[in-house]
Amino acid sequence: MLAKRIIPCLDVRHGKVVKGVNFMGVKDVGDPVACAAEYNRQGADEIVFYDIVASHEGRGTFLDVVRETAKQVFVPLTVGGGIATVNDMRETLRAGADKISINSAAVKNPQLISDGAEIFGSQCIVVGIDAKRDGKGGYTVYVNGGRIDMHVDLLKWVEEIEQRGAGEICLNSIDTDGVRGGFDLEMLQAVCSRVRIPVIASGGAGKLGDFAEAFLKTGATAALAASLFHFGELTIPQVKADCRSKGIPMR
């Protein structure tokens, strides 16, 4: 049986690690390569790098970070932020990423999912989603770091993502992100019951039990967190021990 995965996410800006709270109020923290190596040592099942600036000029510096990390970290590496074309995907994979995560670009141009899956294989295409409750019992998809409502229905969008050949969905809830009250279980389960591809829970982890809760109450196959691990409030071994004690398969 596959183990459930615990994934730390490193937001990178100008070659440094940062973490936004509700996407605002950024604190500069440290060297991304060193952080990734530390997570690898702690037993992270995968590491995500997210280029939050994603400017054309900053691309080289960011890919240098990816390249350097791939020399020291031997678990799968997922890279996102500013990937808008097949060429961006190729460049990122060549730098040493195992998977690429696309978000806004996929909403604006869904064909990018199909093209990426066909050229590089479904297994390396992750579609990230920022979604929010619409106040009418549903959820809509946002782009540009959760700032712009695209008025796209979340559940229709995840079906399209799967049908176009994406290998995975990383679902971030804008309502719970940065609040630390736990993952958005309702939204997660709504998505998990619509698609067969793996769904990664993101946004809201605040305490030890939140991870196991997401695995026990929804079909999520992985859970992602940033600041919680980054500031050392919880370590990956602690989270894994808690999940294991509740009967969840962990590496």
């Binding site: 049986m1 596959l2 183990a3 995965r5 099942d45 479904s122 297994q123 290998g167 995975e168 067969r196 591809i197 793996p198 196959t221 398969p249 590496r251």
Partner: peptide, 10 residues
């Protein structure tokens, strides 16, 4: 099961 078989297995 989901194909591809992707992830950590024992």
């Amino acid at each position: 099961v989901i194909i591809p078989h992707m992830g950590w297995n024992e």
